[in-house]
Amino acid sequence: MRTPDLPADDLAALPGLAAFGRTATRLHPRPGTVTAADSHVGGPLRWPADEPWPVCAHPRVVSEDVPLPQDLLDRLAAAERGRTQHNIITDEEFVLLEELAALVGPGFSGYGSMNGGPTVGHRYVSRPHDNPMLAVAQLRAADVPDLPTPGGADLLQVLWCPFDHAQDEEQVWGPTIRLVWRREADVTGPLATPPASAVGEDHYTPRPCRLHPEQIVEYPYPQELPEPLRGQADKHPDYVNTFMAPGWKVGGYAKWQLSDLLPTPCRVCAGPTRLMLVIDSGEGTEDARWRPVEEAGVDPGSLGYDADEPTGVVVGRWGALRVFMCPTCPGAPFRLDQQ
């Protein structure tokens, strides 16, 4: 698949930006049949038969409902009726809500009822589990030009645990990630069937997709640019959408639209990391700037799948999970960020 060319006028309008261009590989996942020999999303991995399958032991986060006493609910309803402004809670309500939160316990996230059922308190709690991880993607260096090759590895396998986890160290709420780097030639007698993984969130189960890798050039988020170029980029009417690729990709630059630019130092050496992989909820195909030339003018309904969400994966609030890798430390340590 091919991305439409960046209009020359857009680059010319920002003199000096071209010097900061960096290649990235758009993966262009599209539903299809895949094998363990392919680069893909959501397919079987080329996994050695004598190597244990990864298991997630990180506590998963689950939602629990807690019964509430009717007396407390009645007092809350009476306090709400006493409001002088419908959208401003009273001091009495505030006290009652604190009482309710204390009753529900740590992880309190609100209260309510569903389908006419009883009103209950909601809380998120961590529960231990040992869950075989789920295959997310397999990337071959032969197919993906921007894939790193730490220690001579030419194959990256991405697995995660398809439950929400509170990963405080990374400040990420979502699946735990395991990256496995290996040399394809070393895999003999590959595993036929991996152990089944329990799934807590269906949108963490990727649909099998073939990849159509394409190397492009993209440019930094404005906050990563020096002045005065940063100021010029900030004034561009649609800088991020014009110069930064959406969707699943390897390499390139990270967007920081939710948090502003954050440091991502290596947890081993404290040196800089580099964006290695983006797992995105959408491909950005709704915008002509990033819609593949091959799909331009095609009736989306004729494709048999959602071209903007081909993998079925949703992370965060339809955001992106980004993997930053240390380019120098042995073992390719990484850290996560979610936007």
Rank of each mutant, 00 (worst) to 15 (best):
G284I: 00
E286A: 12
E286D: 11
S302A: 15
G271Q: 08
G304F: 04
G304A: 06
V268E: 14
Y305Q: 11
P263Q: 07
R289S: 13
A270T: 09
L303W: 07
E294S: 13
E294H: 07
R274E: 15
G282W: 00
G297K: 07
V293H: 03
R274N: 06
G301Y: 15
A296E: 05
A288K: 08
V293G: 02
P300R: 00
D308N: 15
D299F: 05
G271T: 04
T273C: 06
P292K: 04
V278A: 14
G297S: 09
D280T: 02
P310H: 11
V293T: 13
C266A: 03
D299H: 06
E286Q: 11
C269T: 05
A307I: 13
G301P: 14
T273G: 02
D287Q: 05
T285W: 03
C269N: 08
E286N: 13
V293P: 01
T264Y: 05
A288P: 03
S302Q: 11
V298L: 07
A288N: 07
R274H: 13
E286P: 01
C269F: 12
I279S: 14
G284Q: 00
M276F: 15
G304T: 12
C266M: 04
G284T: 00
E286L: 13
L303Q: 11
R289V: 14
Y305P: 11
P300M: 02
P272L: 10
E286C: 10
P265M: 10
G282H: 06
P292M: 04
R267H: 15
G271C: 02
E283F: 01
G284S: 00
S281D: 13
A296Y: 00
V278E: 09
P272R: 14
E283L: 01
R291L: 14
E286G: 15
G304K: 08
Y305H: 15
V293L: 15
D306L: 06
R291I: 03
G304D: 08
E294Y: 09
E286S: 09
P292A: 03
R291K: 11
D299M: 07
G304Q: 08
G271S: 07
R274C: 08
E295K: 07
R289Y: 12
T264D: 04
D308Y: 03
P263S: 08
Y305T: 10
Y305D: 12
P300E: 01
S302D: 10
